[in-house]
Design a binder for these strands. Structure first.
Lengths: 336, 336
DNA sequence: CTGTTAGCGCGTTCAA
DNA sequence: TTGAACGCGCTAACAG
């Protein structure tokens, strides 16, 4: 391994002081003569000089990096398209602003021992949580003690250094429900994962509000881990016990599509016999037939916005807004 | 913002030298008395001391970080489940080994200006490439000049500091083709994206080899950006010109499912009238009906292995193997 | 077992 | 316009 050239090496080659080289590197052009700069730039290229960021950061007392912490109980933590889009959005903005993104996926029971809470300091943090409500609260309290700006996705927390970015699940769910009740639906079954995320609660609340206002009812079907098999078995079970509702309202598209598949395979017609709706639309809904009525999550935008707010807060020391909610677009389809 | 406690602060509070504190932190227990250590640990917790990694790294001349560079022309670069799984696998192993993963997604035309090639130094690099064959080769040559171990996903390059990790696309494609020709198929249409990745070439080669050995033929259908619409229109076009083949062999599951959808909507029976196969299976193939015959990519394992090999090479200075190929599992389905 | 010294590479300060 | 000295926080090497 060849030793990396340092600022001093470049300076020596050019016969100037290291400060002059530093001035060139940092664009303080007026401090340096034109041909001196020329000579220095040539030497930099020649020697393959690269800054030592550790030294720069030590000097500047900044890490120039943003941590992204994903609490999830599966090892393939980017498999969830929602998370993947948030990370892409954040990563793009961080890169653009010259920060580097440090990605860490962790089981929720290991959350408290993350190096991002320990020795790995960053200038800001973005996190998606999981686990029980108690675990999440404890974790949020821990994050708030770090003394750096923190953005939480689909969560809220009242603290000057914490900003929650969410999508407006309540309104979107209500909009879908409005559409359904206008078509005469009164008996809704809501497909929900066992884990009661705040977002899921919002969706159920929005659905229920609208439905009950017209004298309808919403029954929640527990679909376990929201996987294909778990969902189909929960739905099958529910049909056996309670018969078909007017609509299966999906807490997300995965559950909606598993249900759609089950119903079609049983010869049940959609939307004639029963309607199905989804939520948090992703690419693969294109493969559903009939097209799913669903809601398009602004996940990528949430990630980007997390980056924007984080960078602003890291530079100003505080968040302008501590709770941001993004609108969700309803996508029409023939499934309802 | 409260100033972070330093090693020296801790030392002062405990009335010892900073070296003693450092010894405690780094587990050099035999160098320190038991009650001294006790006192120091207490002070560390009390002051909320956290190491300054920049200083540690400057001192150690190591970055303790791994860069992950994803060249892709869409901003939502983790949308591809293959990439997402590779990143998860790498991230998990990096975290486990105490390295931090720096994630950067970049358009291929910006590749050369990535900070990971410039000032952002890491101890190792993992990359997925895109762009034309020339662009990719130029980029690989650039990576090889960095002087750090580099792992390339689904690529190969002959250089002591570069290791290619691939899945065995050729064999898997050949296996699928064997199955098809055994069932009597001779006239195959291969669904391929316009971009000719090495992996796609391998798949076509494996398919062709087997097919031609029995006197069959493989025709390639250009599906453009491999999206839902592009694929359907290419397939529709091809059917108009050449009629139905015995099998549509999908270069990946997205194209296979778009084709499946199109055929079903036209009342064409699968597999009676025509067979369809996929490749690089991901979760949502569960929603296909009939179940798709496809190949299960070991993407997560490739990412993990990239981490393993990278860490070994970073520590030993060289790769043990410079070309690694992982087997692919064929997943049976009724679509063929 | 504990303390001292020195220096990693950079940027700021102050003087020339 | 440039140079020298200093210190960011940490640890290896050596001394006590």
């Amino acid at each position: 391994m060849i030793k990396q050239a340092t600022l001093k090496d470049v300076a020596k080659v050019c016969g100037v002081s290291s400060m002059t080289v530093s001035n060139v590197l940092n664009g303080r052009d007026k401090e340096v003569g034109a041909k001196t700069r020329e000579r220095i730039l040539y030497a930099i290229a020649e020697l393959g000089y690269r800054q030592n960021l550790a030294a720069k950061r030590l000097r500047a007392q900044k890490t120039s990096s943003i941590g992204m912490l994903i609490l999830d109980d599966v090892s393939d933590f980017l498999n969830d398209p929602f998370i993947a889009q948030v990370v892409s959005g954040l990563s793009n903005h961080a890169t653009e602003k010259g920060y580097n993104l440090i990605l860490q996926g962790l089981r929720s029971d290991m959350a408290m021992s993350s190096s991002l809470l320990g020795n790995l300091r960053t200038d800001g943090l973005c996190a998606t949580l999981s686990g029980t409500s108690d675990q999440r609260r404890a974790f949020k309290e821990r994050l708030a003690t770090l003394g750096i700006p923190v953005v939480l996705i689909q969560e809220e927390f009242d603290h000057p250094l914490v900003c929650g970015i969410r999508q407006d699940d309540y309104t979107a769910a209500a909009e879908i429900a409005e559409y359904l009740v206008a078509k005469g639906a009164r008996n809704l079954h809501y497909l929900s994962p066992s884990a009661q995320w705040p977002a899921i609660k919002e969706r159920i609340a929005g659905t229920t509000k609208v439905c009950e206002a017209v004298g309808g009812s919403v029954k929640v079907i527990d679909c376990g881990d929201e996987g294909f098999k778990a969902t189909q078995s929960a739905v099958s079970n529910s049909i056996g016990l309670h018969g078909l509702p007017d609509v299966f309202v999906g807490g997300n598209d995965r559950m909606a599509m598993a249900t759609l598949r089950l119903l079609i395979d049983r010869g049940i017609r959609i939307p004639e016999d029963v309607c199905v709706t989804g939520f948090n639309s992703f690419d693969f809904v294109a493969f559903a037939q009939p097209k799913l009525l669903t809601a398009q999550s602004p996940a990528h935008e949430m990630g980007r916005l997390a980056g924007v707010e984080l960078v602003k807060a890291m530079e100003s020391g505080e968040f302008q807004d501590r709770a941001i909610s993004l609108p969700i677009t309803i996508v029409r389809g023939q499934s309802a």
